[in-house]
Design a protein around this nucleic acid. Structure first.
Lengths: 205, 205
DNA sequence: CGGATTTGGAGACATGGCGTCAAATTCCGG
DNA sequence: CCGGAATTTGACGCCATGTCTCCAAATCCG
């Protein structure tokens, strides 16, 4: 890692990613051009293409780095779980905490004019989903989970995590614990078990 | 509506939308250019801009038409509901049936190379979400629903609908009833109430 | 250490999409 | 049938894109 060539290589790559993060945040993903990213570095246009094929690819690299940050945490949480409740609540808590912390990153996605939710098929993200699915299957095999449709369960978990997470961020103050409690209660006890806002749900019609 | 001017106007608009649908399906949203759409019509480039500002706007118009088709059905289902179960299951059934039927439309979205889920802020779609939220609030006020966080509940419903819907479409054969049952059970009874795949869930750990 | 070889950055260039605008055409009312 | 308004046309200037060649610097090797 000590060769000059190697050092400038990683430096350039980092420079491009940093510039991209900045310019994506400022202009939104849709509006930024490859040239905008290049201008935010001191590199030549041709150099960019030695590292990435398009702005899409830069974006994916950024996404990938993010996934690399959360994935192990989520995994650890699930492995540690000794019950359904721990599995579910741990996952939601970790995920919500993450997106609340790394808002800068999420701002990139939400500020995006053209897309609401972006590509979810970078290697890291796919690996994360696969992991989740495998852990669900394993939990079912071990009898921790009832024998349900693992794919649909995963889809439901992901859907709730993203949508509720999105709403959570738009509130002030951001209360990750409350959001996690809500989501967990939904999965654990279903609709009727959701925390009531004022008085306990005496009547369940 | 009988004037020639007026007729060509709607004809042109329709021509552009039809061309866009076709070309979006073929190339994907991200890859198509305004020029591609124009080329698929027999209009001049300038004419396009008399009708739409960008491909984004065309896409929104298409989305809007779709929402216009589902929204009343969903609404009717919710109004008809006399219990939580009817509210939830009716909504899921209707939504899943719709996306299963109108796959051509959903193909446009799913074939999209750049985005997974596209802008959801056309007037019709926003109105649809607002309606859903209002109906939830109303159901809570009437005591049909327990007093839960309406925003989070809506987010959860939407998240599950889209994610599970997506998975549903990737199966062969597409079983909308099963998907609706799954989602409904999740919301009604929570995790433990989900239909088991083989034997009844005798043990709820 | 110095010449040969490889690597990779620089930036000009051809291509093609973008949105505009003045001119041409079409429609409508008188 | 004519005048004026509305609408379409398509060429134009501008800019982003991705490629390609050239060259300097880094690495390798005797």
């Amino acid at each position: 890692m000590t060769g000059k060539r190697e050092r400038t290589k990683t430096a350039n790559r980092e420079a491009i990613l940093a510039a991209a993060r900045e310019v994506f945040t400022k202009l939104g993903y849709g509006a930024t051009t490859v040239r905008d990213i290049i201008r935010a570095t001191d590199l030549a246009s041709g150099t960019f293409y030695n590292y990435f094929k398009s702005k899409e690819e830069v974006f994916q690299a950024i996404q990938d780095e993010n996934a690399l940050r959360v994935r192990p945490r989520l995994r650890a949480e699930r492995i540690r779980a000794r019950s359904v409740e721990e599995f579910i609540s741990g996952s939601f808590r970790t995920f919500f905490d993450y997106i609340a912390t790394d808002r800068q990153t999420f701002a990139v996605i939400r500020r995006n004019a053209d897309t609401m939710r972006v590509r979810m098929d970078t290697p890291e993200i796919i690996a994360g989903f696969d992991e989740l699915r495998a852990d669900i299957v394993k939990a079912i095999a071990e009898g921790i989970f009832p024998l349900v449709d693992a794919d649909y369960l995963m889809a439901a978990l992901v859907g709730v995590a993203f949508e509720v997470g999105e709403h959570m961020l738009s509130r002030d103050p951001v209360d990750t614990a409350a959001a996690a409690n809500f989501a967990t209660a939904l999965f654990m006890g279903g609709f009727r078990a959701l925390p009531t806002l004022a008085r306990p749900a005496a009547s369940a019609a």
